[in-house]
C-alpha cells in the first residue's frame, strides 16, 4: 500500500447537494486540506460517468499534490482521473476487481456497516475502511447506528485503519478516536461551513486520542 494514511486521518467527503459549483467545492476542499484534512473522497453519484470523471480529474489536479484523493464508486473513473485510489461502497465493485484495475499501489477503501463486513474487507485486501454509521447525522437522521461500541469492536477485529463516519463533529470526534478509530470522515462538519479551514483545524485539534497504525 502507498501509505498516505496516518494514524490521524481526517477525511472529507464531497457533497454536491451542499456545494454544487465545482470551483467553490475545490476551494472548500483545499481550505479543509490546509486545515488538516489528509484524505479527500470525491463522491458525486448524482452525476453521469463523464461528469464524475471530469469533477474527479479537476479535484485531483487541484488538490492531489496536497492530499491523497480517492474517488467514490468506479475504479475506472479513479484511474482515468489520476486519483490515489478508489473508495468502494459496501455493495459496490469488489476489492479484487478494483485492485486489478488500479494496481498494487492504489489506495482502496471500503464502506462497511458491521464488524463482520470489516473483517471481510480486510481479508479481501482493503487498505482502510469507513465504518458507520457511528452517530445519527443530517444525511442519516434516523437510521441504525453502530455507536462507539461498534467502533471499539471493529477496531479490535481488524488491523487496517478504521475511519469512523456518521454524525461526527468537534464535540464527539475524540470519543471516536478513543474508541480505537484511526480517523474520522465528515461531510457536513466541513462542506458548506463558512470557514472550512477553521472547521477542519478545529476537528483535527480535537483528535487527540486514537490508535496508531503503520503508515
Amino acid at each position: 500500500m502507498i501509505g498516505p494514511l496516518t494514524n490521524k486521518t481526517l477525511s472529507v467527503v464531497t457533497d454536491l447537494n451542499v456545494i454544487a459549483d465545482w470551483n467553490q467545492l475545490a476551494i472548500c476542499v483545499m481550505a479543509s486540506v490546509r486545515g488538516g484534512v489528509n484524505l479527500v473522497q470525491v463522491r458525486a453519484k448524482s452525476l453521469n460517468v463523464k461528469r464524475q470523471r471530469a469533477l474527479a480529474t479537476k479535484i485531483v489536479e487541484l488538490i492531489g499534490v496536497h492530499a491523497p484523493v480517492v474517488v467514490n464508486g468506479d475504479p475506472e473513473i479513479a484511474k482515468a482521473s489520476g486519483a490515489t485510489g478508489v473508495h468502494l461502497p459496501e455493495d459496490g465493485t469488489s476489492i479484487s476487481n478494483a485492485r486489478a484495475i488500479l494496481g498494487h499501489d492504489a489506495l482502496i477503501g471500503k464502506s462497511v456497516h458491521s464488524t463482520n463486513a470489516a473483517i471481510k474487507a480486510e481479508e479481501d485486501g482493503a487498505d482502510y475502511i469507513y465504518f458507520g454509521t457511528v452517530f445519527n447525522s443530517t444525511s442519516h437522521p434516523s437510521g441504525r447506528t453502530n455507536g462507539l461500541q461498534g467502533v471499539i469492536q471493529t477496531s479490535n477485529a481488524v488491523s487496517i485503519p478504521v475511519i469512523g463516519i456518521g454524525g461526527i463533529n468537534s464535540q464527539n470526534i475524540d470519543s471516536v478516536m478513543d474508541a480505537g478509530a484511526s480517523g474520522v470522515a465528515v461531510i457536513s462538519a466541513i462542506i458548506g461551513k463558512n470557514d472550512p479551514y477553521r472547521a477542519a483545524r478545529t476537528l483535527k485539534q480535537a483528535m487527540t486520542g486514537g490508535r496508531s497504525t503503520a503508515a
Binding site: 485531483v60 489536479e61 487541484l62 492531489g64 499534490v65 496536497h66 489520476g82 490515489t84
Partner: peptide, 13 residues
C-alpha cells in the same frame, strides 16, 4: 500554485 504533476505525483511542491 502548481497543479499536480501527473507524471510524478510525489514530487514536492
Amino acid at each position: 500554485i502548481r497543479r499536480l504533476n501527473l507524471d510524478n505525483p510525489n514530487e514536492k511542491t
